[in-house]
């Protein structure tokens, strides 16, 4: 076994500090409230805004889980970048293939 560098040994307690209990419970409450909101708004006749509300609320919920439960808010910045990269690449996949489908000459369905 070769020598370890002279860097001082750091201990395990380096991760994000434990979050507060109240913070977690409030987040759960917010998530459940958003769920009710989302179900309720879906029943209203809002036209295209139904979809905006659906996806907007989902995005907010996902952000809450990411930042609070998954601790992205307090953990190191690199993890925030990695997490956003996954979603950004998915956005590219959807956006550029939509660019095709939305601008195509409409094809008649075969039935």
């Amino acid at each position: 076994m070769n020598a370890r560098p002279a860097r001082p040994q750091r201990t395990h307690r380096s991760g994000p500090r434990p979050p507060s209990l109240a913070g977690n419970l409030w987040t759960l409450a917010a998530l459940l409230l958003l769920l009710v909101l989302s179900a309720g708004s879906a029943l209203l006749r809002l036209g295209p805004f139904n979809e905006v509300a659906n996806l907007g609320i989902a995005a907010v919920k996902a952000l809450l889980v990411l930042t609070v439960f998954m601790r992205l808010k307090t953990d190191n910045a690199l993890l925030r970048i990695v997490a956003s990269t996954g979603f950004a690449w998915l956005a590219v996949l959807i956006a550029l293939s939509l660019a095709d489908v939305l601008t195509r000459q409409p094809l008649l369905a075969p039935w």
Binding site: R7, Q9, R10, T11, H12, S14, G15, D75, N76, L78, L79, V82, A83, T85, G86, F87, W89, L90, L93, I94
Partner: peptide, 25 residues
């Protein structure tokens, strides 16, 4: 040291989660 180990493990997990996002994506 343990700190480096934890950093590696969480980074690895997040990278894996990014692939999961694209799987479902």
């Amino acid at each position: 040291d343990p700190v480096q180990q934890r950093e590696a493990a969480t980074l690895g997990m997040w990278a894996f989660l990014a692939t999961e996002v694209l799987f479902f994506g």
